[in-house]
Design a protein around this nucleic acid. Sequence first.
DNA 1: TCCAGATGTAGCGCATCACGTGACAGAGGG
DNA 2: CCCTCTGTCACGTGATGCGCTACATCTGGA
Lengths: 100, 100
Amino acid sequence: MLRNWVLPELRLTVTQTAQELEIARQTLHRVLAGKAAVTPEMAARLARLCGMPAHFWLDLQLAHDLWHAQHALADTLERIPVHALPDTLKTDILTRHGRT
Amino acid sequence: MLRNWVLPELRLTVTQTAQELEIARQTLHRVLAGKAAVTPEMAARLARLCGMPAHFWLDLQLAHDLWHAQHALADTLERIPVHALPDTLKTDILTRHGRT
DNA sequence: TCCAGATGTAGCGCATCACGTGACAGAGGG
DNA sequence: CCCTCTGTCACGTGATGCGCTACATCTGGA
């Protein structure tokens, strides 16, 4: 993602990018290697750097974290009662607070 | 949000909800009071409980965290160089990995 | 051939934070 | 009066992002 598309396009090395982002070289490397998550602070830095929306980077991380959480809590989730919420209320809340 | 719409509709108290989610009562309270963030694990539990999508709860938290990050790093972000990324590449990446 | 820079990887310490637990106080209903 | 629910605080723990140091590898230029 970042390494294969953005950095080559900007003609930036990992070391240079880390300097411009004002973070440690290893910190950026951990993100690139998937060893660390994309934090909101990191997303804000990346958004500033290349113009991609911050929530884009965060949504990628979010989907990843959610996937892990659902699998780690699979057996626990099965024990949680499922309550019916009226669709009218559901759609009402989603339209009120949903992303455009 | 949770307290004002979902819980009254389900006729659930905070204590009961915490028991059904298999978490400590104080943990749920911290989330309701905004003292703690909605983690992916918590979002998965809430999604199971009331049927609202997990990414909905996480998007709420995400927007909040991002807002804080951008303000906390305001002066730092100003020092990060802005690089122009071709719109063709931008939209290409967004369509590839963007949420529907 | 030699060397400087970039990169990958590992370990250490620090700060932050979600979470559980125990405890205490106030409000409200039977 | 007692019980439940609730809000709040304090403490400890485990996880994690981050900076830093250090070492090995590789590549391109002098």
